[in-house]
Amino acid sequence: MRPFTYLRAKSPAEAAALAAQVDGSRFIAGGTNLLDLMKLDIETPTHLIDVNGLALDRIEATPEGGVRIGALVRNTDLAADARIRKDYGLLSRALLAGASGQLRNRATTAGNLLQRTRCPYFYDTNQPCNKRQPGSGCAAIDGFSRSLGIIGVSEACIATHPSDMAVAMRALDAQVETVRPDGTTRRIPLAELHRLPGNTPNIETTLAAHELITAVTLPAPLGGVHIYQKVRDRASYAFALISVGAAIQKDGSGHIALGGVAHKPWRVEAAEAVMAQGAKAVSEQLLAGATPTGQNAFKLTLVERTLASVMAQARALA
């Protein structure tokens, strides 16, 4: 870990402005992924701006009947919030399926969205990785790829986004609020926050330099049955092989997003149009054009079967 200067910011706008003033700045909130990567010399900031003191830790109602979740709301608090549990159960469930109690106590809403891939080659600085070291190549494609992406991948990168929370938020039509160094703010649909790898897997989001996420908003509750099914080798404290986040209505329609398959939470609205035809049809739409490796082709079947299981559970609960 390289030496860095450290500063506590007092307001979101100030934090963004400060970041733009010092080369090598990064925001630190929970730190659970950033420090992990700094210890491995994968993240190498020279200036850390601690944003934990910003008053972004509230969950409040929006005039549109939805909720606004502060960027610094801890995963535990978000999952345990009474309104989230009642109206956005999918989000609670996804959060609780992730990491461990200790990590959820620290990890923040924005940090969770911005966590980096768990591809083992990304994590090993002796290995080529286009995401870590642009142009160095991808060791994963012909290597150990069992847990990696099957759709939206490129010849440069097959990494997945590891978040469970983001899958739920994608299914729930979340938007991200930000502030930029010049003080301007904007809203970005979550669907547009994460990028596909293409030829620049090192660029993971559409955020501008030093743009700070201040909140995530959810529209009014969707209703229906909320299920987050995470499939993994061990029963807890593991990243998903795949996951299915679903909010399914009595009539069988609904929203569906997948985790563990792509560089971003994966949702295809067209797939939701064929839910009446069953899991196979939905799965085919969701994963049309998938290019798995030999080691992770099983995810195609796994998605379809898990989806079928989720839809059956929803029917039973409706």
């Binding site: 090993d124 060791a139 290597g143 150990f144 029963a235 593991a238």
Partner: peptide, 19 residues
Amino acid sequence: RGFFVNHDLAGYEVPVHAD
């Protein structure tokens, strides 16, 4: 490349309480 790729406790999974 001749190495064990999953060389940490996140990659090499061992049972947890819930297992």
